[in-house]
Design a protein around this nucleic acid. Structure first.
Lengths: 369, 369
DNA sequence: CGGCTCATTGAATCAAATG
DNA sequence: ACATTTGATTCAATGAGCC
């Protein structure tokens, strides 16, 4: 059957590094099959001569052939083609991350928008230890830019809000991330001691991206796999990956690297991923259980509005009947209202939010499991 | 003579706010006549409905007609036209700054490159107090992006490296700037108390830009003048400005605002623009003068970290040697550290910041002038 | 349906100190 | 005792827009 063939085509690629040009290799992947694309394409650095430090030592920059394009138009064509394939292989609710510097990120972002991707955030990776500007002719180039976009405007993309909030000491994560560049033991070296890849990204960066925008078991495609940071982090976090890389030496280094990675056990994965949504409790359950009596009055904070509880778990207030949310919204003239925090019952002269009753129910439910 | 006519056309516009559409007005300005363009064009926010805070209050966002475009193509055409005029009126060694968010900055940057501007840096304005993400559906959009580009690749652009280094506590200025958004008394209000402009930029941002990339007497053109932050800062810093603004209410607010600004006197200008501003005091001077002894210990506040003073004005701490700033940053695992405020010496059982010693040296230096 | 917000400013309120 | 000032604390508002 066709479906089986498609599944096999995908499964054959899972957790492997496919050799070849990323556009050609992506063409062989089935439609709507991956959850996330992470792409670190060539930056089109347009370097002129060599750069030396003030002590005259030579800066070992990006000089590889894969970063040479003849013009902006040439780079745009390349971008357009690989983005088109990336969009095709994404599931309807999938998303993409791209990273770049001022040399290429504007072209990349514009092309994403042109192809119908819907930008969700641009994120600044603020390097805690950037290379200084030796010549004193510009500002220290201390950041790179990432763009996070869903496949389309209507996509219900994945965002593990609570996991990121936890990562950020309890306040919501911002669009600027301070992370060190990849150095030390994490930086892959060749047998000659030289760095294996000129632009290896830190695992901390991929950790945050994969944690934020995928779930365990999701498939992450990296069409510019390099030495495999995406694969290493995906494997550790219990995600599947598909890598595409043209250069033999990078593939080899990546394979050795990823083979040594161990998947975190499910407990560790659970704690790093978002807190499970708490079980839904219908307001009517509070009435069924006798925690609130039919006919009892609920109050908005301060007692400005009131409504009466009915046996079926709806409320009736001034000129309005409906759910706790609907009645609250109507009385406030608001577009919406969280009835759980809006409505209060009276105890000992004070107002207690009905949400505490829901907490009790949830606690009891947890006991029985 | 033709030259005189051109000079008159320019002089007639200096330190004035020209009314009208920026493209049409720029067409009347002579070629190669301004040193810097600062442009804060509409962001093309593509807003859908209203946004409410969790407490149901409504966010008063950008609803003005000037931010509405029918498509990306429409926005691109607009961008192309005003950028073309901006480039024409720039002197050969002139430069441009543009600011935007992820909604428009990629299109803006790509068009800059297409027209032959040469990008020097992209700069991230990290907002210290951004609006949070109320829905918990994305990252807090906590930054905006600026692009600094010269008129052409060959332009010998202005960059006051030392002034920016001085502004940044003696280490070279990075491409990420932390500045608060424009609030409080600085935010212009109408007679009804409502904000006069929905997107007024902070003066601190323009101060840094104008200080960094112009010299006193230079001409700064702002084609989207709004309520005149560019003009206010330019005037204060002894630069000339040309503003262009379509909306009467913004022009009026800007004129009243700028009329109240006083140009800094030449001494203050000198101090803001040169590294001699606050006379730089090397830490080693404190050792030379016997205010601190080699071998003496310095402490972080609370005494969590310590380091030893060496005779050459460097510190040595746990596994690290270097300047007071470097050692502090290393021990804190921070990207940077102001050693003057970080390090303390012990006196009478308390911690005294070494900055007080620097103040003493500066006071003594002032005596001799 | 119902879950979801951070840093800052400035006003309002109240307590303590002063004249 | 009463009016005034100062300081501490709390409360309310809001900023280039997001299911």
């Amino acid at each position: 059957m066709a479906e089986t063939a498609v599944a096999e085509r995908l499964n054959g690629a899972l957790n492997r590094i496919l050799a070849g040009d990323c556009i050609e290799v992506m063409r062989r992947l089935p439609d709507a099959s991956v959850d996330l694309v992470f792409a670190d394409p060539p930056y089109n650095l347009q370097l002129k001569g060599e750069l030396h430090r003030p002590d005259n030592s030579r800066v070992n920059g990006v000089e590889e052939g894969w970063d040479r394009f003849s013009s902006f138009g040439d780079y745009d064509r390349f971008t357009r083609e690989w983005l088109r394939e990336a969009q095709r292989v994404l599931k309807p609710h999938g998303a993409i991350w791209v990273i770049g510097s001022y040399h290429n990120i504007f072209r990349l972002g514009a092309e994403l928008q042109n192809q119908g991707f819907w930008i969700l955030n641009d994120v600044v990776w603020r390097k805690s230890n950037p290379m200084p500007n030796f010549r004193g002719k510009r500002l220290t180039n201390a950041h790179e830019t990432l763009i996070w976009a869903s496949k389309a405007e209507a996509s219900k993309y994945t965002f593990n809000y609570d996991a990121l909030k936890a990562l950020n000491e309890g306040v919501q994560m911002r669009s600027d991330w301070v992370l060190p560049i990849c150095t030390g033991h994490e930086r892959l070296k060749g047998e000659d001691g030289a760095k294996a890849h000129p632009t290896q990204k830190p695992e901390s960066l991929l950790h945050r991206i994969i944690l934020a925008t995928t779930n365990p078991g999701d498939v992450v495609l990296d069409p510019f796999f390099g030495t495999g940071t995406t694969g290493a982090v995906a494997k550790r976090l219990g995600r599947d990956f598909i890598g595409i890389e043209r250069e033999d030496s990078y593939r080899k280094a990546a394979e050795a690297r990823i083979a040594q990675i161990r998947r975190l056990d499910s407990v560790a994965l659970e704690t790093t991923s978002s807190k499970k949504a708490e079980p839904r409790v219908a307001f009517g359950v509070l009435v069924e259980r006798g925690m609130l009596r039919p006919g009892e009055e609920l109050w908005s904070l301060g007692g400005r509005h009131k409504a009466k509880v009915r046996a079926d778990g709806t409320l009736v207030g001034q000129d309005v009947k409906g759910s706790i949310h609907q009645v609250g919204a109507h009385l406030e003239g608001a577009p919406s209202c969280n009835g759980w925090t809006y409505w209060h019952f009276r105890r000992d002269g004070g107002y207690v939010p009905i949400d505490v009753l829901r907490q009790q129910v949830r606690a009891e439910m947890a006991q029985h499991h």
